[in-house]
């Protein structure tokens, strides 16, 4: 199966400067996760630029069928991230939108070459930390058991499978328990969660049950959409599972937050 293939690591030269694309969800609802992502990059020795002109990758409109609107917002991102500096994204889903869908979104548009070049510069945060920066982490936290939730788009659009787990396994006091249904969607799906509320609820409820089965008290993910969904459901049903972005968790354990 393609997803089981380890991502091809071309060992790119370690850049001295990167852009950070925070994503709109992180910007408003999980800014501490975004900041942790930037801090992790800074600790790894690269200069991080956060262009103020950034807003959203355009995925919500694209997935709703509003291509012109999606393209307009995507174009604003092309403008906000000039040059050929890598763009690091703390979300497999937004990264997937920019990497796999921008070229098609701009088909027949004069900006398509720009979109293709942009797409080639996009990296998911954990994959960038592992494959490009080769970070080594030193765990300073107390023993804890965690489980990992990959977003569907990090798995199947970005091909990020082992990288986040490799980061967690570097941490001496962290026990990673794998969820047997890890690859199954949590039921977020953007507007799906409200358009198909009943199905989405069944999916997130099953997802939480599978998380509970791992016995881990903390669920980590690289995508805030999934976290908002699973964490929101856990909170609603009074489940104590802590749902956190992996960047925040890593920063807290290795650099004291």
């Amino acid at each position: 199966m393609t997803a089981a293939t380890p991502p091809t690591v071309t060992a790119p030269a370690k850049p001295d400067t990167v852009y950070f694309f925070g994503t709109c969800l992180v910007d408003m609802l999980y800014p501490e996760a975004g900041l942790a992502g930037m801090d992790l990059l800074r600790h790894a020795g690269v200069r991080v630029i956060f262009p103020e002109g950034q807003s959203c990758c355009g995925q919500p409109a694209r997935n709703s069928g509003y291509m012109e609107e999606a393209r307009a917002v995507a174009r604003a991102q092309l403008d906000a991230f000039p040059g050929d500096i890598p763009i690091v994204v703390p979300s497999g889903s937004c990264a997937g939108m920019m990497k796999t869908h921008y070229p098609h979104l701009f088909e027949g548009d004069p900006d398509q070459p720009r979109a293709i070049a942009f797409a080639a510069r996009v990296h998911e945060l954990t994959a960038f930390l592992v494959n490009v920066l080769g970070v080594t982490l030193e765990d300073k936290g107390a023993p804890v058991t965690v489980t990992w939730h990959p977003s569907c788009h990090s798995l199947r659009e970005m091909g990020v499978v082992e990288e986040p787990k490799a980061l967690l396994r570097q941490l001496a006091n962290v026990t990673l328990v794998e969820n047997k249904r890890e690859r199954e969607c949590c039921g977020f799906g953007g507007t799906f969660a409200v358009r198909q509320a009943a199905v989405s609820t069944a999916m997130v409820s099953d997802k939480l049950a599978s998380v509970r089965e791992t016995g881990a008290g903390t669920l980590l993910s690289g995508d805030c959409g999934c976290l908002m969904n699973i964490g929101g459901h856990a909170e609603k049903v009074g489940d104590g599972t802590r749902c956190r972005h992996i960047a925040e968790f890593l920063m807290e354990r290795c650099h004291g937050g």
């Binding site: 609802l29 800014p31 956060f50 609820t201 997130v204 409820s205 459901h233």
Partner: peptide, 18 residues
């Protein structure tokens, strides 16, 4: 219906980054 409401944070990532 099935989830706690998302919470807006007092400062955005734009604010924190600066």
């Amino acid at each position: 219906k099935a989830r706690a409401r998302p919470r807006f944070k007092p400062r955005t990532l734009h604010d924190l980054a600066r």
